[in-house]
Amino acid sequence: MRIGGHIFMALSALVLAMPIVVVCAAALNGGRSMFFPPRDATLARFGEFFVSEPVWTNALTNSVIVAFGAATLAVLIAWPVAYLLWSTGSKLSKALAGLGSLPFAVPPIVIGVGLGFFWSFTGGLGHIWSGVISHAILLMALPLVTISIGLQSIDRAHLDAAATMGATERIAFRTVVLPQTMPYTISGFFFVLVLSFNEFIVIFFVSASAYSTVTLQIFNSLRNGYTPTMAVAAITFLTVSILVFAAVARWGDLPRLMGAEQSKK
């Protein structure tokens, strides 16, 4: 049974990795077409993706702008909501948190269509800043959850101690709450960053083909056939994800963020 379990896990990992490995290996192709296994292996495609082909460098720049912008904005909106929810627990704060997680809970195509209409009426359609806001709205549920978990993990004794020693709410916030929740805030930031990087359907509706991110660019070329340069994009994105989550696991408590109970080591 034990061995059977290991085999099952290994098999799952294999299937999980298979399409990703295939895409990544295809990046090494020398020619213009995708072959697996790759032919005339070369790293020239990396140069094309990062440096020489404006289609891809522009798309990458847009992706980076949207992802970092959205992650910052999402954390900035999520923080006060999570804090109000934690410190007051009022009905209004619950409603705010519920609304904040709504866009993430419905099928993405519906919120994509809705935001598309919204921006076409407010004049934001096709501008990159509206893409930033749209992703922040879509993904703010994530920092909302991680920050809330962080706030819950604060030891009330620390706050009481700060209060006994004469700290005001503001000072206690700065010296106790903020430092202790920092890892969770950063985790939330990174979750948004990575998911925004990879998001497709919402940015598809709000960009209105005026600009393209990497995922949009890849979707556009999906029907015309693949080029190995697209695979480089996949490798880049995968690397970013792994680095980010490894960082979260290294400096944060990933199992706890994912909802495992706290004590077990």
């Binding site: 999980l16 895409v23 990087f197 995922t215 999906l222 792994i242 490894a246």
Partner: peptide, 25 residues
Amino acid sequence: AIWLVFILASLSMSEVFIVMGWDIL
């Protein structure tokens, strides 16, 4: 934690990459 990193990385892979991978496969 190591498994979770792996799973989260594959979770965050864009649908377009996944489709591309299976399309090739």
